[in-house]
Nucleic acid binder design. Structure first.
Lengths: 337, 337
DNA sequence: GCGGCATTTGCACGCGATTGCAAGGCTTCC
DNA sequence: GGAAGCCTTGCAATCGCGTGCAAATGCCGC
């Protein structure tokens, strides 16, 4: 194997008997090159295995084609599903994803984020519960476009994509009522992110509108284990709930497991359960969880097409916001249907 | 907000009253700069909000700091867990991850991969079942370092990290025998990746060594649904198995669910089940699956430290291979213990 | 045959950084 | 005091590419 690995535009130019500019123009859409020259260049490029160096191109164009995904709870079913559709959509539009994992607590997060900025990423998509607005600020100040998914930062500039959590909460309440439930509970984590709180508040408000109270319990991180603890707390009360809306499918799975295996409560006969996200596990036979599906494909498409719309039209801080509808996926964790 | 977004080294140099080289050297570890100059530079840099442009640096140094993660089945619990630890480890060592999703079947995969190469990624880590060796070849030819995880390509150059699948299969056989099982089955997908086949072959061989036969069934993709189908096929046989080793936890979950909810078979009383990977769901109360834990942290550490060891010492194709041990995680899907 | 016009091509500069080389400053020692 | 040697520093070349500008080419109509 030769020591010299990459071919430069100069070498292609030499072989094709044209100038280096001609090579550059051949690979620049919309540039003025004659068919004949283009043919010669492409031929030489192919023979030499030439490819445009994106580092150099990004340097010149001042636009790298890199989109930075800033993610916490990476391994969670919902988040990984989101990453999957986002990377697909990005690749589809010729961009490439850089991944910044914000799970760690040491300084490496900050470091990686700065890294991403130093690579002059064109944009960042934040799917992180991290309440730290400074990240977003940093991205904006670096001239990146910014997409916030399921966060509700009151900020100018970014595209904000959210679900109509309150409305969904109202719908699930109706479903509980139809099933004959009256002793309502809401199981939440302590994360306190806007979407989680919207679900909680929407549920409580809807119940109140029907003259009903909701027992709200919050605990820990938004995961399976927290669901179990929440079940422990809610199912040992004097007035045991007969319906619980969990802020997340993961919580719901933990909740159901504790209810069944620990308290021998039958779902949905004695207890109706609903979740949110429609992760894969919600459809598993052991859960059959009624839940709300996040429109992942739509979210990804909206996000990427907004990014593609170019860095223009940014009328000095005009905020764009998209509010999407979450479909109710009906399964057997609620009676009736 | 001003139009000019980024500060260049020149501006820092001007403000600090030094030359551009001094600025560069200040941000290059090991370069020769006097404490006094360094102080002035850092001060100016801080005031102006200067950061090294990694695109330009990568261009000069011919090493970008980018590591490309080539992944299929991104949203799978095991894969997303792998990605999580890898990104953490990479960030920890000052590198940044680019994500290429190989799930799509259209040309965008190839495109994204080439993209990654065009960004002059220093290395690629392949966690993809994709049997396409050409990807690996392409990476190597581009002068990248390459890490293959749980694949067994017979190739020179890359670091290959594998588990001792056969040995693990032997251990689980012993567990089944201890539980009194004699009618053994193996549930596999049709993916046919080396590690899956190693588990199958190892299990069959170990059984044969004990004078026992194994019913092997393969179906579809390595996911929950396939597990259900496999259960359907294996549990309707005349001689119903009393122990099944599933090539993957996801298969095992589907298998258990079908066994319980569709065939009303009690696990582990009437059927012992084991899986592989130790995904989060394996520990959920509904499954309590006995399985093998992939040493994710170790894999990530080995991979990244090998990458850090630099592009040297590549004695023209010397292959490095690491074989790791998978710990058996004992839960209640097998009798006894 | 020639001027006018549109298209193509090459030159040369710039993007933002790294780095070899040589000049300059300082200490040290004879 | 002066030569030797080390540490700093600036100059200038380089990395691979994009692009404005002017020269060159080709085509058309008169």
């Amino acid at each position: 194997m030769s020591q010299k690995v990459f071919v430069s535009a100069q070498e292609v130019a030499d072989r094709a008997g044209v100038s280096r500019s001609a090579v550059s123009r051949t690979f620049t859409p919309g540039a003025s090159v004659s068919p004949e020259t283009r043919r010669k260049v492409l031929e030489a490029a192919d023979a030499l295995g030439y490819h445009v160096n994106h580092l150099a191109r990004g340097l010149m164009r001042n636009e790298s084609g890199i989109v930075c995904l800033i993610v916490s709870d990476l391994a969670t079913p919902h988040r990984s599903g989101m990453i999957k559709v986002l990377t697909q959509e990005l690749q589809h539009s010729g961009k490439i994803a850089m991944l910044v994992n914000t799970d760690l607590s040491d300084g490496s997060v900050d470091l990686a984020l700065r890294q991403a900025i130093h690579y002059r990423a064109d944009a960042s998509i934040i799917l992180s519960g991290m309440p730290d607005k400074s990240i977003a600020q940093l991205c904006l100040k670096s001239g990146q476009r910014l997409v916030l998914i399921n966060r509700d930062d009151e900020q100018d500039g970014p595209l904000r994509i959210n679900l109509d959590d309150e409305e969904a909460a109202g719908r699930i309440l109706i479903a509980f009522l139809r099933a004959g439930c009256r002793k309502l509970a809401f199981a939440n984590s302590e994360a306190g992110t806007p979407s989680l709180m919207a679900r909680e508040n929407g549920f409580v408000a809807a119940a109140r509108a029907h003259g009903l109270d909701v027992v709200v319990e919050r605990y820990g991180w938004t995961g399976y284990e927290s669901g179990r603890v929440l079940a422990q707390r809610l199912l040992t009360r004097n007035q045991r709930p007969d319906a619980v809306f969990c802020a997340t499918d993961l919580l719901a799975c933990g909740f159901m497991d504790a209810a069944r295996h620990q308290f021998s409560i039958s779902v949905p006969d004695q207890l109706c359960v609903a979740g949110f996200d429609d992760i894969e596990q919600a459809s598993w036979a052991s859960y059959q969880l009624t839940t709300f599906a996040q429109p992942l494909a739509t979210i990804a498409r909206e996000a990427v097409s907004w990014l593609e719309s170019g860095p223009v039209a940014n009328s000095e801080g005009r905020t764009s916001a998209i509010r999407l509808h979450a479909d109710l996926v009906w399964r057997s964790s609620i009676r009736g249907g």
